[in-house]
Amino acid sequence: MNYGENFKSELVNLNLNVNNQKQFFQVISNDLKEKGYVVQTFKEAIIEREKMYPTGLQLENFAIAIPHTDVVHIQHPFVAVYRLKKAINFYQMGTDDVIVPVKDVLVLGINEPKKQVGLLSNLMQCFSKNEFVKKYKNITTSDSVIELIKNNL
């Protein structure tokens, strides 16, 4: 399955300045809505889903969050990539009490449930590889992020 088509330069922000998770979801939801990728209900849905099913991942050398929500809130499929100026807290996937400070967030907006599971799995594999993480951390342009991820999916 080709997931690479869901990555677009216009959905990469490597310098996002937010103070907490609530502000993060507010800022990205407005941006994604303006660009036509999500519907009005997306913001509330992704916030609620994150409360029920946390998406923070503390990997060996890297922390990331991969929030997503139900397909009914997605207008066009996408993966948005955000690097934050300072870490914000997410709860570790599968817990409700382990905090993971995260500076990198990938927001999945997939409109086919079967594809979402596969994409999530592929992304987790990428970010668990030290060589990939090293390259990812040093990238400074949107196009380079897209290229790296596409080449490793």
Rank of each mutant, 00 (worst) to 15 (best):
N152M: 07
A80L: 01
K103V: 11
E60C: 07
G94V: 00
S142I: 08
V39Y: 00
K115I: 06
V107I: 12
N6D: 07
K137D: 15
A65K: 03
Y136N: 10
K114H: 12
T140G: 00
G118R: 06
M93E: 15
I46V: 06
F132C: 07
E131T: 13
V105W: 08
L59A: 01
D31E: 15
K51P: 14
L123K: 08
M93V: 15
T55Y: 02
F90H: 05
F7K: 00
N89K: 07
Y53N: 15
N61W: 09
N19M: 03
L16A: 03
Q40I: 10
E50Y: 02
I146G: 00
F24Y: 04
D96K: 12
N2E: 15
P67L: 05
L120Q: 04
C126R: 03
V100E: 03
P113Y: 00
V27L: 03
V81W: 01
S9M: 06
V107N: 02
Q58N: 13
K115T: 03
A45R: 00
N138C: 04
F25T: 02
F78E: 09
Y3H: 09
Q116H: 04
M1W: 07
L59E: 07
Q58V: 08
I47Q: 02
F62T: 08
I88D: 13
N20E: 08
L57C: 02
F25Q: 07
N111Y: 13
F24K: 05
V105N: 13
N152F: 03
S29I: 08
V12F: 00
I88M: 07
I64R: 00
R49A: 06
I146A: 06
L59I: 07
T55M: 10
Q116F: 02
Q92V: 10
I46T: 07
N89Q: 11
G118K: 02
K35S: 03
F7Y: 05
V98E: 13
A80W: 03
I74C: 12
H76A: 14
Q23K: 01
G4F: 07
D97W: 00
F42C: 11
K115F: 05
H73G: 11
N6Q: 08
G94I: 06
T140D: 14
K103R: 06
K134D: 15
Q125V: 12
Q40C: 11
